[in-house]
Amino acid sequence: MAVNNNPLSVWIAGQAAGELFSEQGEFVFRYEPDMTVQNFVSLTMPVRSRDYSHSALPPLFEMHLPEGYLLSVLQRHFAKLSGADDLSLLKLLAPSVRGRVHYQVDIEAVQPLELTDLLSPTAGLFDELVVRFALHSPVSGVQPKVLAQIQDKATLRMEDYIVKAWGPDYPQLALNEYWCMRVLKAAGITVPEFYLSDDSALFIMKRFDFTSTGQWLGFEDMCVLAAKSRKQKYEGSYEQLAKSITSFVSPQHKIAALQQFFKMMVLNNHLQNGDAHLKNFGLLYENIHNIWLAPAFDVVSTTAYIKNDVSALTLMGSRKWWSRKHLLTFGVQHCELTQAQANALYDECEQAMGLVAAQIQQALTTEVMADKQQILMHLLSCLAPK
């Protein structure tokens, strides 16, 4: 099969919005001549008559490409057929990109699962999921993961879940993420629906950009909003993230967004999440007038595996883990909080850490597997009062 050099048709909510193609070493996106302003492909790419031209695949489109494990699977099996550059890879995945921005209306059907299949997995299930869903998984992130379609038993509705596994380099990563997400949820931070399989082999998270009324929301991560590629996801500061939230989030959501971001920063520091990079924060939107901070996702304690790991981005010019005093200063100076508000939000985080720490201690009383005990003990040390 020859490499496909035809333009890739980009759609917004079922309507053709423009074409993406390569020309003379540049990646070009061209809007349809009659495109309305509300059908923008990205908050950073408003509708205009002039082409958008980039030396690399524009960040909005690159956001749909996989990384790490899944990327290696696709390159190993399909690069000879489709080409190895980013646009060729995007064309390969295009039929399965589901969201406000998509590339083809019709999506090849795959055999659905039920959530109980994931919660009580059989041996080799994740490998089976990779075979079944690899070409249907336009999700970023380096750890083993796939995007699986799950059918609700009661409604028969198809929904998308991200299913993550782990390898020997990061033992019990699913258990790690599950308890970290429980801390954030207990602190009142918006999080997606998530589960841990019975054997702790899989962390399962429901996509959060699809509403109960059947509407796809726009989602853009902070790499896109900062006009950076996925290779630059560790370049930047949390002050810049706060500034992006202030700049892009709609006025009616700005206070809540900055408060949630501040609490995320407090807990990322306590949990020592060294992977809180640009791609692990993002915004959701219905339209240009209704933009808010996306739920928290991909939170793990990386020091469980890398003892002296540091923060993914800089804060106050450093990648160290900061104390309450310094984080309160960050909240006041960059999240538009009063000192009293910052203290109250920090207290909410500490209360959540205490609550979940008690639950982890209870789980330890019946846990017999050494690697699980090690992760749980590490999380307890992170949650201990400092």
Rank of each mutant, 00 (worst) to 15 (best):
D198C: 02
S301Y: 08
A352I: 08
Y31P: 04
L364S: 09
V10Y: 03
P7H: 00
F203L: 09
A165Y: 04
L241E: 04
A56S: 13
F78Q: 05
L355M: 11
A201M: 09
T302I: 09
P192Y: 01
Y305I: 04
V356R: 08
F262V: 03
S22F: 11
V110Y: 09
L383N: 14
A358C: 05
P66W: 03
I189S: 02
L92E: 07
E19A: 07
T155V: 07
A154I: 06
A148H: 03
A2T: 12
L70Q: 04
S72F: 06
L20C: 01
P58A: 11
G141E: 03
E193V: 05
V163Q: 01
S42Y: 13
E239F: 04
L89P: 01
D309C: 04
Q361R: 13
Q374V: 03
M45D: 15
D298A: 08
F40I: 00
V131I: 10
N273S: 14
Q260S: 15
F210Y: 15
M35Q: 15
V47Y: 12
S197V: 12
A358M: 11
L313H: 12
A17N: 05
L115A: 10
D209G: 01
V37W: 03
R319P: 04
P121G: 09
Q252V: 05
H54P: 00
F219Q: 11
H54R: 08
T329L: 10
P251F: 10
A296S: 06
Q24M: 06
L267C: 08
V139A: 06
A342S: 06
G167A: 05
T155Q: 08
A352M: 07
R100A: 05
L57Q: 08
C335G: 07
F210S: 03
A294H: 02
M265R: 10
D371V: 06
L135R: 13
G218I: 06
L278R: 10
N308R: 07
A16I: 13
L258S: 02
V224C: 11
V183I: 13
I291K: 03
R207A: 02
W322M: 15
A296F: 02
R50D: 15
Q272H: 14
A276V: 01
G274V: 05
G14D: 10
M222E: 11
K91V: 04
P33F: 10
D371L: 03
D86P: 00
K164L: 09
S301V: 05
E19R: 10
V332Q: 14
G68E: 14
L90D: 05
S229H: 06
P46F: 12
G188I: 02
D160E: 13
A342C: 04
S42G: 07
A384I: 00
H136C: 07
A134E: 15
D160T: 08
A201V: 05
D160P: 00
L383D: 14
V3G: 03
A227S: 13
W166Y: 15
A79I: 03
E23H: 11
V41F: 10
G124E: 11
F208E: 05
S55M: 02
V142H: 13
M45Q: 14
Q260L: 01
K206S: 01
P66R: 05
E108I: 07
H136T: 05
N273D: 12
G167Q: 14
G83F: 12
I306Q: 15
S82G: 06
T329W: 13
A304R: 03
L345M: 10
F297T: 01
D51N: 14
L313E: 12
D51E: 14
A304E: 11
P251T: 00
G214E: 12
F78I: 02
F261R: 06
T246W: 09
